[in-house]
Simulated assay, not measured.
Amino acid sequence: MKKNIIRWAAALGSLTLATTLAACGGSSSAGGADADFPTRDITMLVPYAAGGPTDISARALATEMEKELDTTVIVENRPGASGITGLSEAASAKADGYTMVFSTDDSFVQSVKRTTPYSFESFDAVGGVFTQPYLIVVPSSSEITNVEGLRKAGKLNYAVTGWANPTHVNQAAIFGDLGLDATAIPFDGAAPAAQAMIGGQTDVAMLDAQAVMPYIKNDDLRVLAVLTADGERLDYLPDAPTFEEAGLPVDNQTLTMYGIAVPTGTDEAIVSTLKEATNTARVSESFTKLSEDNYMPLLSEEDAANWYTLLQEKSASTVQVMKQYNITVE
């Protein structure tokens, strides 16, 4: 009888503790993490405007993640200051897994280019998703037909899709290594940059595949070389040589990758849950089709897992090139 009383008392105590925790919104899991995560909607911040490639990709990825997480993933746009506005909000959010950010790497790299409210240490990586190949292109009417012709150009004007962004820093490194007298002409995005080349205002540009492929298909622009994550030719441009094949430098080049991160300090179990959902969503049939339709290959499993580390390693090269070619930002 005494043993039964002890067991009943212990059970009552456990029930009372569980009830108290539930009433207070707490959890008995390590670090105070929600053992049943997620139990409510998750917000995915996108530090760019609605309708762009980052936003469209985020919404497609969120739809697939909802199936894995069994909850709603709400995409909210926070454009401004080259992604700094959105990442600042994400970095200051509560580290509970209910706020994550989906972005290109340039938003994170802003923290080494200038003073920002966040740093690489402000986030824990969830996982990489896909990459944005870069293409070096010239007008179809140009006398430059290959990289060798580019080497002999001597002097040229090159279009960039934003001051001190990857297309600017990358091209400064390329043309500097080739010993060319090259002047950067900034434009507000890839479309105006492409149109400027077609109109004869600039000679060459490095542009992302998603934006420039329509001009290539219309025979308005010619591809000289492609920069890819795996160093392999692109399936949709099988005749275009890679940087490696064309003898162009790759060590000081930054390749745009898209990925998800959460505020640093998020419980490891929650990060693991988000990682599994991200990995499953990104290789889903619908998201794979989206990546193919937009000329943005999925990252390999290894690169997806190491996305944030690769990003940090490349940021050092970005800073070095900016210093070498006196590219400054306010």
Rank of each mutant, 00 (worst) to 15 (best):
V109S: 11
G127N: 03
T115I: 15
S140F: 13
K152V: 04
R233C: 10
V226S: 11
A173I: 07
Q171I: 07
T183H: 14
N218A: 13
T115Q: 15
D220L: 14
A182M: 10
E143C: 14
V126Y: 00
E148P: 10
L237T: 02
N146D: 12
V226H: 11
P192K: 07
Y134K: 13
V204H: 00
Y134I: 08
I144L: 10
P166F: 11
A194Q: 04
V138L: 04
V212I: 15
T145Q: 12
G127T: 01
V112L: 04
K113H: 13
A184F: 07
F120S: 03
S122T: 03
E143V: 15
K217A: 07
I185C: 08
F123T: 01
D203H: 14
Q110Y: 14
D124A: 11
Y118R: 06
D230G: 03
K155Q: 09
L207N: 03
D230E: 09
V112Y: 01
T145K: 15
A184R: 05
A184P: 10
S111P: 03
G162Y: 00
A211I: 08
M197L: 14
A159V: 04
S122K: 06
L224Y: 00
S122Q: 01
T131M: 11
A153L: 10
A191R: 15
G176A: 09
T228W: 05
L180A: 06
T228C: 01
P166C: 08
E143A: 15
F175L: 08
S140K: 14
R114I: 06
R233N: 10
V138Q: 01
T167H: 04
Y215E: 05
S122A: 01
M213K: 07
W163H: 07
